[in-house]
Design a protein around this nucleic acid. Structure first.
Lengths: 332, 332
DNA sequence: TTGTACGCGTTATCAA
DNA sequence: TTGATAACGCGTACAA
């Protein structure tokens, strides 16, 4: 049994291949009864169009490439879900290219095939537009998600605003204000500005409120390091203290360390995270919720509009984090 | 400037398209001077064959799909490197499909396009062969890596042997023997038998040596949980103790906890991990080294042989972990 | 050893 | 509203 082709469908439905193609691509001007017949045959034969042939014939291949750093952090899983939801509605398939490290990025860029051949490109977090030739960007509609660059469509999170919201909250609390920051990575190309933005927003609104940041600690993006950093901070902290951790992962280590020291949340210590990871609610962590799925969905929508012919100027969509207060700050 | 086609190359080289195609696919029977001319033009034009057209024409698309659970653990990064090294040598491109969860697996299986259209399929860790129709497996040569199933080529790690080696080592140590195991996942389909195998090997060789396992602890595959589990174990442990952690991640938590308690490695406590993660050497962790890249490379080689026409019975390649002794067991 | 012509599965154009 | 047919870029049989 070979895979059925458009020819098989046409023959079985008693129509020409042109008609089947029109049905497939929702071209109007097909009598409704014929459309139903064709769709019936397609279902019977379990026919699916060959994307390679589509591409060859000058049409779309209905595949999108997604370039992202990694896929196992909560953030990227949610991002992927948002993207795939949107693309699936539009009957596009998604191919994922985890870059992981510089070597893999170069391997990808050197590859003239694969992602190059997709109808469109989504780049997450990293702005790699500079590494692409102009031709490539023109031939292949591109959208940035969780990143910003001039000249291309972008859907981004307002991390600065998130920092501001955190700072405004902290400024209202009595006692001493501390922060734990994510250590920025060394590799230029792979540096995301996310954490700097959160930091600058936080410091700005603290300054605006005339409050001082009494102490800060640095941690790499890792659970064990977070616990250690939390310990160092608490060793020298004065209470009552309010601590802003620029990622839930860091806040988690702080919660553990605080529990080990018998500190009472909401009284001795208020902890505010950033991300609203799935476990944040269960552990009662106050944090900034990010509409990641919505951002990803919008990114996909921007790309899809380009694919259906839109050619206006680049659009930028900004999404805003939302402060969620729970037990770790004594709320609720 | 359009992408150059085989026609452009042929015209510029003053030959027919057939000749260019022959050069491209290493078909013999091309005069060496002509081959050089053609290759020169290909380089000049920066020509790369269109994989979609290749596929349509009945040839290969030179793409391989890789299905794997996640990609950010050390293990899968190494696996990917091994696979890509081999496939790149053979001029194949690799498309990665991180499954992540059941929903995404079903989405993949439902997709009649994409990976379905690749020349071959690599499935890592999970044996999903049961979920594929016979047709699909026949049309698309498949190899399992880090997993085993009947009827398909496999490249796997002998985790049982690794457990045995760990057990033999532990049995030679004076004092009390403990172990920390990885909690197995609940989802049947996504269950890997790796950790059970390590456990059974360990218990078997302990029994063979007439030594008893004094206590054991369970931890999920997570740094924080590991630290907690380590604490619980040490709370009730008798010394000197030898502890086998069935993953380096768990051993890491144990090292931290031991340091916090002032235990002297090699005297009070000997720690043996499993994986030989990059940091294991720096931290002096004795562990079992797995030839992951070699296994992945071999898996790719098995698949490539199928792609070049081999159609013998399924082959199974087994790779053996190797005991590496460092400071955490008082060696070196 | 090489060139020509056909077919792969689809889309798009053109008549009907 | 439809069917026939010319592309699309490439592999390959066949003829030269």
């Amino acid at each position: 049994m070979q895979k059925p082709t458009i020819q098989d469908v046409a023959r079985r439905a008693g129509v020409g291949v042109g008609t089947v193609s029109r049905v497939l691509n929702n071209h109007a001007a097909v009598r409704d009864t014929t459309r139903q017949t064709v769709l019936g045959v397609i279902r019977d034969l379990d026919y699916t169009p060959n994307p390679h042939a589509r591409r060859i014939a000058g049409g779309k291949s209905y595949t999108i490439s997604v370039l992202l750093p990694v896929v196992t952090t909560e953030f990227y899983v949610r991002l992927l879900n948002g993207l795939e939801a949107a693309f699936q509605e539009a009957r596009y398939d998604v191919a994922i290219f985890p870059l992981l490290d510089r070597a893999r990025l170069e391997r990808y860029l050197g590859s003239h095939t694969l992602a190059y051949q997709a109808d469109g490109l989504v780049m997450a977090t990293y702005n790699l537009t500079g590494m692409f030739s102009e031709n490539r960007l023109r031939d292949q509609p591109t959208v940035l998600v969780d990143a910003y660059a001039e000249g291309v469509d972008c859907a981004r999170m307002d991390n600065h605003l998130g920092g501001v919201l955190a700072g405004q909250f902290a400024a209202q609390q009595p006692g001493f204000i501390y922060a734990i920051w994510v250590e920025t990575e060394l590799d230029q190309m792979f540096t995301s500005r996310v954490f700097e933005e959160r930091r600058s927003g936080f410091l700005q609104s603290l300054a605006a409120a005339g409050r001082a940041l009494v102490g800060e600690s640095l941690s790499s993006f890792d659970a064990q390091a977070a616990r250690t950093a939390a310990g160092q901070l608490l060793d020298h902290a004065q209470f009552p203290a309010t601590v802003f951790a620029s990622a839930d992962l860091l806040a988690g280590g702080l919660l553990d360390e605080a529990a080990a020291r018998g500190l009472v949340l909401g009284r001795d210590l208020k902890v505010l995270g950033f991300d609203d990871q799935p476990w944040a609610q269960a552990r009662g962590l106050s944090t900034l919720h990010q509409p990641v799925e919505a951002m990803a969905y919008e990114a996909a929508t921007l790309l899809l509009s380009r694919l259906s012919g839109y050619s206006g100027p680049p659009r930028v969509r900004t999404f805003e984090p939302r402060l969620v207060l729970r037990a770790s700050t004594g709320d609720m």
